[in-house]
Amino acid sequence: MNGTRHEEFREYVAERGTVLLRAATQLTSDRAEAEDLLQAALAKTYLAWDRIEDPAAVDGYVRRAMVNTQISWWRRRKLDVYPTDQLPDRPVDDHTGRSEMRDALGRALRHLPERQRLAVMLRYYEDMSEREIAEALGVSVGTVKSTVSRGMSKLRDLMAEPSSFGF
């Protein structure tokens, strides 16, 4: 591709890239996948740039390349799933349960008194030792132990009865 045709392609992508990305997003419903799809279609368009004589036809060419590429990816993905009569040895990991638990735990933490919440978060989220927490908070190690213990007890109670604080 000569220099001027290369520049024409760059100008086209700069001018129409946003519109084409929007079309790719509609095809994929996912921003990252849409970017990949558009990049693949633009690569195909770049290779055919010298053969496209009508500048008004470029958008159609790119869109057709996106549709064809998306169909190809969809078919390839479809072949990756094989139905079976046998159940797996272990259940499939369902991330929604963990996400819901994390959300519930976050709400329960907000119901702890500030000092308990801070001590529990430093101990279990930041993995700090009791001595490090004591130094950070300016209290004794014994105070940290009792504060974390009371905080964990209250968290257990809150998580056992979620309705008690609006879950």
Rank of each mutant, 00 (worst) to 15 (best):
E11K: 15
W49P: 03
L47K: 08
I52S: 03
D36S: 09
A14G: 12
A32N: 11
E33W: 02
L27K: 01
F9L: 14
A32I: 11
T28P: 08
Y12G: 01
K44F: 06
L37Y: 07
A32Y: 09
V19P: 00
L21S: 10
Y12C: 00
A40W: 00
D50Y: 02
R51I: 03
Q39W: 06
E53N: 07
E11G: 13
R10E: 15
L42G: 01
D50R: 08
A43N: 13
D30I: 01
A32F: 10
A40S: 12
A48F: 00
L42D: 01
R22F: 04
R51F: 00
L38F: 01
T28N: 08
R31L: 09
E11L: 13
S29M: 12
E15P: 04
A41Y: 08
D36L: 05
A14L: 15
R31F: 03
T28G: 05
D50N: 11
K44A: 10
T45A: 15
E15Q: 12
A32H: 08
T25Q: 10
L21C: 05
E15M: 04
E15V: 02
E35I: 04
E15C: 08
E53P: 04
A40I: 03
A48R: 12
T28K: 07
V19K: 13
R16I: 01
T18K: 11
A32T: 15
Q26C: 06
E35T: 12
A24S: 11
D50L: 00
R31A: 08
D50A: 09
L47N: 12
L37G: 01
L42F: 04
